[in-house]
Amino acid sequence: MIEFYPQIKHVHIMMAVASGLLFALRGGASLAGMRWPQWTAVRWTSYGIDTTLLTAALMLLTILPGALFSNGWLAAKLVLLVVYVVFGVLALRRGRTRGARAGFYVAALATFGMVYSIARAHHPLGFGHGLLG
């Protein structure tokens, strides 16, 4: 399956971008009081993108099974992924006030940015590792 690694990685990257963009659009529209972010079709589109993203990630891990434990940056990405999901749920549905939802929205976007930074830099500190030495 190693021969499909470039294609699977490309799908993973494209789905990560699509997931982040859709979340940013849904969160911004939700905070603006629009109703379309809660439509069933939009939620199912999000679920489909995220399922494809997770499937591609798991396929990449099966191709390189030791990668998770040999690379600290992958473990950091996984931890921040959980944080991102929690912030995203609080921003879109569970935040009690509009201010709380806005704060969780910004926190989710910052977390997504850090996940992106870690993925690009292949370092647990992301792009910040260059600043620290």
Rank of each mutant, 00 (worst) to 15 (best):
I2Y: 11
F4N: 07
Y5N: 06
Y5V: 07
P6K: 14
P6G: 13
Q7L: 14
Q7S: 12
I8P: 04
I8C: 07
K9R: 12
V11S: 05
H12Y: 07
H12K: 08
I13K: 04
A16I: 08
A16L: 12
A18H: 01
S19H: 02
L22E: 00
L22P: 00
L22Y: 01
F23D: 06
L25E: 02
L25W: 13
L25P: 03
R26N: 05
R26P: 01
R26G: 02
G27L: 03
G27D: 08
G27F: 06
A29T: 06
L31P: 05
A32R: 11
A32C: 05
A32L: 12
G33F: 11
M34N: 11
M34P: 00
W36D: 12
P37D: 05
V42H: 08
T45A: 15
S46D: 10
S46C: 09
S46V: 05
Y47T: 05
I49F: 03
I49T: 01
D50E: 15
T51S: 12
T52Q: 00
T55C: 15
T55S: 15
T55M: 15
A57C: 10
A57D: 03
A57S: 11
A57L: 12
L58S: 06
L58M: 15
L58V: 12
M59G: 06
L61N: 01
L61K: 01
L61Y: 04
I63E: 07
I63C: 04
I63R: 05
I63G: 03
L64K: 15
L64T: 10
P65W: 02
G66V: 08
G66F: 11
A67R: 10
L68P: 01
L68D: 04
F69E: 04
S70Q: 15
N71W: 07
N71F: 10
W73A: 14
W73Q: 12
L74V: 08
L74G: 00
A75N: 01
A75H: 03
A76P: 11
V79K: 07
L80P: 05
V82T: 13
V83S: 05
V83Q: 04
Y84R: 04
Y84T: 04
V85D: 00
V86N: 08
G88D: 10
G88M: 04
G88E: 07
G88A: 10
V89R: 09
V89F: 09
L90Q: 14
L92W: 02
L92A: 12
L92D: 07
R93N: 09
R93P: 01
G95N: 14
R96S: 12
R96D: 10
T97R: 09
T97K: 05
G99H: 04
G99W: 07
A100Q: 15
A102G: 08
Y105E: 08
V106M: 11
A108N: 12
A108K: 05
L109Y: 03
A110L: 15
A110Y: 09
T111G: 14
T111F: 14
F112V: 05
F112P: 04
G113M: 14
V115M: 00
V115P: 00
V115C: 01
Y116Q: 06
A119V: 08
R120E: 14
R120V: 13
R120W: 11
H122I: 00
H122W: 02
H122S: 07
L125D: 06
G126K: 08
F127R: 11
H129C: 10
H129S: 13
L131W: 14
L132E: 00
G133K: 12
